[in-house]
Amino acid sequence: MIPATFEYHRPDSVPGAISLLQQHGDDARVVAGGHSLIPMMKLRMAAPGHLIDLQGIADLRGVEVGDTIRIGALTTQSEILAHAGLAEAAPILIEAARQIADPQVRNLGTLGGNVANGDPGNDMPALMMCLDASFALAGPDGTREVAAREFYEAPYVTAREEEEILTAVSFARPPRGHAYEKQKRKIGDYATAAAAVLIAADGGRVTSASVAMTNLADVPVFSAAAGAALVGTDCGPDAVRTAVAAMQGDIDPVEDNRGPVEFKRHVAGVILARAIARAWSRA
């Protein structure tokens, strides 16, 4: 459990970090909280020659809550949990962050690292897709915005270019109806199945709904069809059944120690139905 040799860098600005990335190319990796990358390095499944620590960059910190919510990439899960403004504006973020790993991991693990790493087991990517969030990517030619729903391409492969750094996440203030429901084997585990649901309602009917799923394919899954199945309904049993079936058409789980495919598909349905019920009750 000892990583291979690497050079450690600690730039104090985003341009500084980018220039290090340009200098070292694919031999360099950026690290924020380190709770995904460092274990991979200890297992020698990742062996970057240059590790660029982002912790010295003040610009990557900070949370702004307005009509749009903007969260700096280095914001830890614990900081999210402790942020009163976020609790009021986007309680689904709190509900999800609370279910990530354990307090020690949440004290170091960052939102930026969680979404940028491209691990389908991470919770925040599906949530960001559900929120229709946008990721700010700073590179040698300036900063561009990429929608979370367009970001994830394959396991650990994202729309981020090698010389870019994910600097912030932003999204519009979500509707009141929300839930992040997660089944896991134990504390610290990735989801067996998890569902992020946002529902806006008016006059007892769903006016908009958004559904995304965690760890049920090789990328996080945004199920437009599942959300659409709820719009115009009162989230009754038929609507939930239709939404679950639509979601099950979009996921593609694989067998692992958490269980076989059939189990995961079934549990995904149960978890989504529960998430819809809870989100509806809050809408």
């Binding site: 958490r258 269980g259 549990v267």
Partner: peptide, 8 residues
Amino acid sequence: HDHWRIWR
């Protein structure tokens, strides 16, 4: 008796 075995 983990989750998937009980489910099974």
